[in-house]
Design a protein around this nucleic acid. Structure first.
Length: 520
DNA sequence: CGCCTTTGACCTGCGC
DNA sequence: GCGCAGGTCAAAGGCG
């Protein structure tokens, strides 16, 4: 993997010029052929390499001029210049050292002006990079939702196909084999006519039927007629979507975390073993949106709010809601795709672990226990403490035996965390993931109270993507993590939507360079 | 007046 | 079959 040393940090507006001087030569030393002092004319190449963004051409043209001056003095034979303007100025001053004091003043003023100009230029560049990062973030979350929807569509088609085959078999075999086929369908996890199910007194079939039939899941009203087979097939997919749950544990004094969506409370129940009632909400941002969530305080630590999301939004989401929605949607989709077979499921859980919970500082638990596969994101942990004891680049599948070691690819969990507080950087430091733990028994997972973060951190999710961007740009490590995520995803083949954007592509190049710089 | 919350009733699945 | 628990519905009331 070739290193690209784009040395600009995303939040360098306040940085001294010296840092830029140190970093920028790396860009040219790595992204363009080495420029020797007496080369014919490397500047054109340099410009081409620097020209990440078309809008930047004017600035680069400025660079050309300055670089020519630089080399014309011949004071730095091995300068890989580009933005190396300070060197130019110092060179000039050194040439004019023998002049009068007034000329020194002029030189000083010129130097100052050039410095100011350079600073402004960098600030502009930085702002543009921030904007692009924000756009990348938006694109990525949108892409996540799109992928989730596509996966759901594929599942729908698959189940529809199975349904057709079953219907053909029913026609061919006649009514006598009807019941046995129903049983087969039940056990294979495909759709089953609930009327036939009710005929079947076998308890095993009944249990399977709960997992596979639409009426078993609350997405579809219990009172909905259940005789129409195609409808049931359709509903079954919907209920499949609903089965996957994403649970978020966060400290909050508020009765409900603000995740950018509008919710309507439709019920409240006392759950067994918990003195705090469980509240049921459904999304009201669009009519018919199937997304629901349950909110309940943790029995062991009532400052911890457990929010469980189910379903996928069927409507456009505001930026503030995209992070959470895409996270839950992706988690649900991947969990569902992972439920196809045990091997595939395990594999997909690994993918899930990487794509949903990878950022390195929160506990994530995937529960495969019935009736609903659930991913739990634990945002209540102090990442610094936890990271001392857990290698953030590894995650475990306890029931699988050997430790599966993988490099994390931070993705969706970061915007999720980033909206979890008021101050971006602080929020991130307090809530970023500290590790990943996969478990097949959600009941056995105990909250780690000793790792708690201060309760004030999660007074409510700030519903601003700009806040997310601020959090990203404020922390270079976070930036690197995000860069790794995006560049990894894009280089890994998920580039269909992203490559359509020139800005996005360039930003990814930039971000991947940031990652490499951080690795160094 | 419309939206939201509250709350008791109801339905369903599951264990015994 | 019965009871329990989870989940949902819908009427009633509150609030802006």
């Amino acid at each position: 993997m070739g290193k690209t040393g784009w040395g600009l940090t995303l939040d360098n507006s306040d940085q001294p010029i010296e840092e830029l001087r140190l970093n920028n030569p790396a860009v040219y030393s790595t992204m363009s052929p080495p420029v020797d002092g007496d080369d014919k004319n490397p500047h054109r190449n340099v410009v081409n390499e620097v020209d990440f963004f078309s809008a930047c051409k004017a600035n680069n043209d400025q660079n050309i001029i300055v670089v020519k001056k630089e080399n014309s003095h011949g004071t730095e034979s091995d300068v890989n210049t580009g933005l190396h303007l300070l060197t130019t100025n110092s060179d000039q001053s050194s040439v004019d050292d023998g002049g009068s004091s007034s000329s020194e003043d002029k030189q000083g003023k010129n130097k100052l002006k050039i410095l100011q100009f350079e600073l402004e230029k960098m600030s502009t560049e930085n702002q543009r990079l921030r904007g692009m990062l924000s756009q990348v973030s938006n694109n990525y979350t949108a892409l996540q939702i799109h992928v989730a929807n596509e996966m759901q569509k594929q599942q729908n088609q698959k189940v529809d196909h199975e349904s057709e085959i079953v219907q053909k078999q029913l026609i061919e075999l006649g009514p006598t084999s009807h019941d046995s086929l129903s049983e087969e369908r039940t056990q294979s996890g495909s759709t089953l006519n609930p009327v036939e199910l009710s005929k079947n007194g076998d308890k095993t079939s009944k249990r399977n039927g709960r997992e596979c039939t639409p009426d078993s899941d609350g997405w579809v009203s219990n009172k909905v007629p259940k005789l129409n087979l195609p409808k049931i097939v359709e509903q079954s997919n919907e209920s499949n979507m609903r089965k996957a749950r994403v649970s978020v544990r966060a400290r909050s004094e508020a009765p409900m975390i603000t995740d950018g969506c509008q919710w309507r409370k439709y019920g409240q129940k006392m759950a067994k073993g918990n003195p705090c009632p469980r509240a049921y909400y459904r999304c009201t941002m669009a009519v018919g949106c199937p997304v629901r969530k349950q909110v309940q305080r943790c029995v062991d630590d009532q400052s911890v709010l457990i929010t469980t999301y189910e379903g996928t939004h069927t409507h456009p989401l505001p930026p503030a809601a995209l992070a959470m929605a895409s996270t839950t949607s992706a988690a649900a989709s991947m969990l569902l795709s992972g439920s196809m077979s045990s091997t595939e499921g395990l594999m997909n859980q690994n993918i899930l672990a990487r794509s949903i919970l990878p950022s390195s500082s929160s506990i994530a638990t995937i529960s495969a226990s019935a009736p609903f596969p659930t991913v739990t994101l634990d945002l209540t942990h102090n990442p610094n403490q936890y990271q001392r004891n857990n290698n953030p680049t590894q995650f475990q599948v306890p029931h699988q035996g050997p430790l599966l070691s993988q490099n994390f690819v931070p993705t969706m969990a970061m915007p999720l965390q980033s909206i979890a507080g008021d101050d971006g950087a602080t929020r991130y430091n307090q809530s970023r993931f500290s590790g990943l733990q996969l478990s097949h028994d959600k009941e056995s997972r105990q909250p780690l109270a000793h790792l708690s973060t201060p309760p004030q951190y999660n007074k409510g999710f700030a519903d601003s993507l700009s806040a997310t961007t601020a959090a990203i740009t404020a922390d270079p490590n976070f930036t690197a993590a995000l860069a790794a995520a995006i560049s990894s995803i894009m280089s890994g083949g998920n580039t269909t939507a992203m490559t359509t954007s020139h800005v996005t592509k360039n930003t990814t190049t930039t971000l991947s360079s940031i990652v490499n710089n951080h690795k160094d």
